[in-house]
């Protein structure tokens, strides 16, 4: 049985209580993207400012939602600032791979250590984001966890930089 403690890890609740990088950025130079979860009405706004060197200079998160969507957004913001866009995109893939219900159901735990999607977990340290691993056991909530990440990808795709 999946207990609530698998879902609501302490570090997750900490990010929910004290969200990092809440706020707005000036557009431009930042890019703004909105994401909606039509099932529950959660919405997230992601601002990213990517410098000429293709490094994420600043990130800010707006919107409202449940503990899973908000803590995921907070951890994401904390995890991408100061990183090159290419690395951020690899982090997105690593996170979404962790959130993939199929690799867990079909491949089992061993799948987690593979280079699924061309990523190396040693290279791509998920850090605090590991706390969201338990969400996979609650499939309805996976969309909450991935909402800000999909919105981040939208924002990155809109930046002028390649």
């Amino acid at each position: 049985m999946s207990g609530l403690e698998d879902l609501y890890r302490e570090i997750l609740l900490d990010h929910y209580r004290n969200p990092r990088h809440r706020g707005e950025l000036e557009v431009p130079p930042a890019v703004r993207a909105e994401g909606f979860n039509p099932l529950c009405g959660d919405e997230v706004i992601v601002y990213v400012d990517v410098g000429a060197d293709d490094v994420v200079q600043a990130v800010a998160i707006g919107g409202q939602g449940c503990s899973i969507s908000q803590s995921s957004a907070s951890m994401m913001a904390a995890g991408i600032r100061g990183r090159p866009v290419a690395e951020v995109r690899r982090l997105v893939r690593a996170f979404k791979s962790m959130m993939s219900i199929h690799s867990h159901e079909i491949g089992g735990e061993a799948e987690d250590d593979d280079e699924g999607g061309g990523l190396d977990p040693d290279d791509m340290k998920l850090g605090d984001l590991e706390a969201l691993r338990g969400v996979v056991k609650f499939p309805v909530r996976i969309k909450c966890a991935t909402l800000s990440w999909n919105t981040l990808v939208q924002a990155l795709d809109e930046t002028a930089h390649p």
Partner: peptide, 28 residues
């Protein structure tokens, strides 16, 4: 407490309630 989190905790007690906008977004 966000309604999603309320309903998630209730579910562990076998209590089924609906969390969401109930297809009434103008009202929300």
């Amino acid at each position: 407490v966000h309604p999603h989190d309320v309903s998630q905790v209730l579910d562990q007690h076998g209590v089924c309630v609906r969390a969401g906008h109930h297809c009434a977004k103008p009202l929300m």
